[in-house]
Design a binder for these strands. Structure first.
Lengths: 147, 147
DNA sequence: TTCCTTGCAAAACTTTTGCATTAAA
DNA sequence: TTTAATGCAAAAGTTTTGCAAGGAA
């Protein structure tokens, strides 16, 4: 199976962009990796491993669950994607690796990006001795408004 | 087995306080629940279900894993404790139910409380239509300072 | 050939559930 | 006595791992 067979109906420029991003990390662009990348990196979104597996198989791809997890972990370790823990039930893989925050609608489960400029901290705690800030995970939980 | 047999060596005033807090929620103070409560609610801390099970059994208690999970979920649903998702590997049960945030030291795994007054938001995003803020989960990830 | 990747199945973990037994009101 | 809680084992859900087979360099 070659690359072009493997990527389904993805837009050519997206395919090229994924190849470039993977190459920048020294990740070999195999058929399965390209399918996962062109699906997840197509737009800013949050997908679970199971969703990715189901979508790829629905598109006729031959992919194993192990490869989906291995690939997502590989991508995350190279900063191509980000892993999110929202409620502990499963991991969400976020194609948006720019700094940003999240809304989490508890009633629907929806996860919505919040751009950095929409949040301003006028005060942050001093970090414990010997440590520095590695990143800030902010989840604004939402509920349905009663009225 | 009666209450006094069940609570191990907990300070009497802690036992009474746990009984009161459970009574306020209409939760029956059984032996296992009292042991779990007097352990977890003794101070502000973050414990996993497995840690609680191991500690209680180390203290000579007869408790099952199912009861630990059922009890922790019961406590959480009544607002006696709070569940935290930090890295998706497991759930942390937080005895501090006052509003607060967290440091998470990625290199050690340590979880440290950050009091509300130490963080100030000068800007927060408008909530999507029909929703309102239910709560804010803030985790400041820490790494070892290199120098 | 040599090294890396994949698929499959099994294992590992965390958490939940069914059901008979026990304890509490 | 009547209802609720517990323990155990099994099940369920997610993620990882071992290993043989397949593919790329």
């Amino acid at each position: 199976m070659n690359f072009m067979d493997s990527i389904g109906s993805s837009a050519p420029e997206m395919v090229v962009r994924c190849q470039r991003r993977m190459a920048n990390c020294g990740i070999r662009p195999t058929a399965q990796r390209m399918r996962i990348a062109t699906l997840l990196l197509a737009e800013p979104q949050h997908l679970s491993a199971e969703q990715i597996l189901a979508t790829l198989r629905g598109n006729g791809a031959r992919v194993s669950k192990a490869t989906v997890y291995n690939t997502l972990n590989l991508f995350a370790s190279h900063g191509l994607i980000r892993q999110l823990s929202v409620d502990g039930s499963r991991t969400w893989f976020d194609s948006n690796v720019d700094a940003h925050y999240h809304f989490h609608d508890v009633s629907t489960g929806a996860l919505i990006d919040v751009p950095v400029p929409e949040v301003e901290f006028s005060r942050l705690p001093p970090t414990p001795p010997g440590t520095e800030v590695d990143g800030i995970d902010l989840i604004i939980r939402l509920r349905k408004k009663p009225s």
